[in-house]
């Protein structure tokens, strides 16, 4: 039996889709997004979202968001029992449209940041964070 590069790639993509798909149909997160965007289109890109690839503990996961010129950025944890995390509203004296915080993730999942840009359009970025389960948990 042989694995071609193409087979392996297809397999990887399939696995990636499997991890992401269940969250796409999360009604609560759809509602939260609609409440933020008013149903407007959300484009990919233009938003920076920094999160660890692997979090040592889901209870305290450091993240940073930023989108130049944004008036607000909403952060969602798509796999949490309630997906809302925080919404950062940047004021007149914000030195930049960036912020960092620490969040709780109930398990491996997709973290999403949606920015409301100055012109009223919306942009998003997402990042998958693997949450590890400790060895003995002591």
């Amino acid at each position: 039996m042989e694995f071609s590069r193409r087979d392996t790639l297809a397999l990887g993509l399939g696995a990636a889709a499997m991890t992401v798909l269940p969250f796409r149909v999360n009604a609560a997160s759809d509602d939260a997004i609609t409440a933020f965007t008013g149903g407007a289109d959300v484009t990919e890109g233009g938003v920076d979202l920094t999160a660890p690839e692997i979090a040592e503990n889901g209870n305290t996961v450091p993240i940073s968001v930023g989108a130049e010129g944004a008036s607000a950025i909403m952060v969602l944890a798509m796999g949490n029992p309630t997906p809302g995390v925080a919404t950062f509203n940047f004021g007149e004296l914000a030195g930049s449209q960036t912020a960092s915080t620490r969040i709780r993730l109930a398990g491996t999942q997709e973290v999403v940041a949606i920015a409301k840009m100055a012109d009223g359009s919306f942009a998003r970025a997402s990042s998958e964070v693997k949450v590890t389960i400790g060895g003995c948990g002591g």
Binding site: T60, T82, V85, A86, N89, G91, A94, G95, R102
Partner: peptide, 26 residues
């Protein structure tokens, strides 16, 4: 009296909430 940042927080913010951001000092 002028806003720098205003954050709506949900239960997914960790214990002992931490924020880092930038402010312009006029």
């Amino acid at each position: 009296g002028t806003s720098v940042i205003d954050v709506e927080m949900q239960p997914a913010i960790s214990t002992n909430p931490y924020f880092e951001f930038e402010a312009k000092i006029p």
